[in-house]
Structure formats: structure tokens, C-alpha cells
Design a protein around this nucleic acid. Structure first.
Lengths: 142, 142
DNA sequence: CCGACTTAGTTGAGCGTTCAATCTTCCCCC
DNA sequence: GGGGGAAGATTGAACGCTCAACTAAGTCGG
């Protein structure tokens, strides 16, 4: 059972990554960053907030946003009032890229996961990973 | 629900990777390679067979085995009868490393996943990812 | 037997992630 | 208000993975 899960989730992630890399020239992680920004007020978030939202280390996010900024999809600026915090903001171009990529990605998610699940299994999965996630985010430090 | 699964499985993989990196100085992928070899007859497999078993691309496996060989945990030799096929074999030292690493890894898997699951949920997960895996391995090319 | 195709595996460049180190700015307490 | 530490964020090196190109060995048809 463990191996079934291991192989399936590995292949699942790889499949998503490949599809996005092919269709939108970006890894899945970057897509998630854009998606999170797009849902935020003013399409902008501090690096820390964003890192928490995408479950990413500060370092990874910093590298990622640097790349995204180089592509012109995100812009960074200091936040007034606290010179430490940086605001990452989704540009119009970045938003356009996201809108372009979203349908294909959603369909891929459906294809590799949800098409194989009954509504009840979706609920089961939700319940399972809610508790797993809770365990990982809180009791992580052991 | 999708995000719950996404975050949880990402954190889960990262948690395993970190634990193994810390305790056994190797990524999870390498551990799986060693584990598969250890279960094979004569502790050896051809690169292709091994690649299929660990759901890895030939390239990744080749790189990985090269590293493992450099560490002295795996040895490679041509198979008699077909000079193309390479046999990867777990060395005694590699086996020792695996035996050393296994308990901690198993416990980590339990801690991050199975501790949060009821027996019924384990069955549910099995059923779900069996069909997901089937979809990914066969209909992949679409 | 010889050229074309297939199979097995490797290699190198480019990219994303990690880890540790660093830097700046803010906060708090004396 | 000045020093110590915490918070926010970045950097660079090392490493694993991907993709595409490539080598070498087997196979098969004429």
C-alpha cells in the first residue's frame, strides 16, 4: 500500500510538472505561486505570507520569485511601514500567463486524479490528508 | 481538497527526504533504489528492470547509480550474454547502510502518514491510488 | 553479410531545491 | 536611545532531476 501511494503520487507530481512545463514553460511550484498571488487582495503578498501559503521555504520562494520577476510575471517592492518585508505582486502579464495556463492545468489534474475517483473517494481523500497535513504542519518539529 | 492533498503530499515527501538525508546521507530516491536491489535475487538487477521498479527514467537511474557506485554502495558490471545490459548490484556495504537506515525511515513513514490513518482509511487509500497509478502508467501518453 | 532499426544505457547542460551563511530592519528592555 | 536578539528576506554552492543527444550492442530483412 505504501509503495502504491509512493509511486502514484510521484508520477502524479511529475505528470503535472511536465504538462505545465510543456504548456506554460514553468514548473508546478511557480504555477502555484502565481495562482496564490492572483487570489490575494491587490494580487500581492509579502514573501513570508506567500511562503506559508505555498508551503515553501523562504529560500525557495526567494529564488522562485527572482526567476518570475526576471520573466516579468511578478514584481517586487518594499512595503511602506516596514522596510524588511517585501511585497511580491502579480503583474498583468503574469496574470495573463496564469489565465492562459489554468484550463490546461485543471484538466490535467482532473485527468490524472479526479477522473479515477468516486465522489465518496474524494471525501475520503479530503479527510485523510487533512489529518496528515495537520500532523505535518503542527507536530513537525517532533 | 486538491490543495489539501497537494500540500500534504509535498510536505510528506519533503519530510521523508529530510529524515533520510539527515540520518543516512541520501535522498529518498536513493533509499528506494537500495531497497529494491536488496529484495532482488542476488541483490542485483539490470538498469532497465530497476528503472521500472522505482518508476524512474533511465537517465535519473543512471545518474543515481553512478553516485551510489561512487559511494561504494552499489557495483555495476556487464551481464554475460548481452553486452548492452548492465547489472547493478547492492554491495555488502550498501546493504549495511540500508539496514542501518531502514528502521528510522519506516518509523518516519509511520509518523507522517500511518499514525493519522484508521485501518479503513488505509484500505481507502490503497483503492484510490491503485486506480490512479493504473491510469498514470497505462494511459499516460493519452 | 550488411545496412537499418531497436534496445540498453550513459552523458552533459540547464534548472529548481536545499542548506547554511549573511544582511538589513525592527523590537524590546535597560 | 543604544545594544541584543528576533524577523524578513536574500545569496551562493552543492546536489538531484530533466531533457535531448549520443554510444554501443543486438536484431532482422534482403
Amino acid at each position: 500500500m505504501w509503495r502504491t501511494f509512493l509511486w502514484a503520487s510521484r508520477l502524479l507530481h511529475e505528470s503535472l510538472d511536465r504538462q505545465l512545463q510543456r504548456d506554460a514553460r514553468m514548473p508546478h511550484t511557480y504555477y502555484v505561486i502565481l495562482a496564490m498571488l492572483s487570489e490575494a487582495p491587490d494580487r500581492s503578498l509579502t514573501m513570508s505570507e506567500l511562503a506559508r501559503l505555498v508551503q515553501s521555504s523562504p529560500s525557495r520562494l526567494s529564488h522562485a520569485v527572482a526567476k518570475l520577476e526576471a520573466q516579468g510575471w511578478v514584481s517586487r517592492c518594499k512595503r511602506p511601514g516596514d522596510a524588511r518585508t517585501n511585497l511580491a505582486r502579480l503583474t498583468d502579464e503574469g496574470y495573463a500567463v496564469l489565465v492562459e495556463a489554468a484550463p490546461g492545468h485543471v484538466e490535467e489534474v482532473r485527468r490524472v486524479l479526479f477522473d479515477h475517483l468516486s465522489p465518496e473517494q474524494v471525501r475520503q481523500l479530503q479527510a485523510i490528508f487533512e489529518s496528515v497535513l495537520a500532523g505535518l504542519t503542527s507536530g513537525n518539529g517532533d
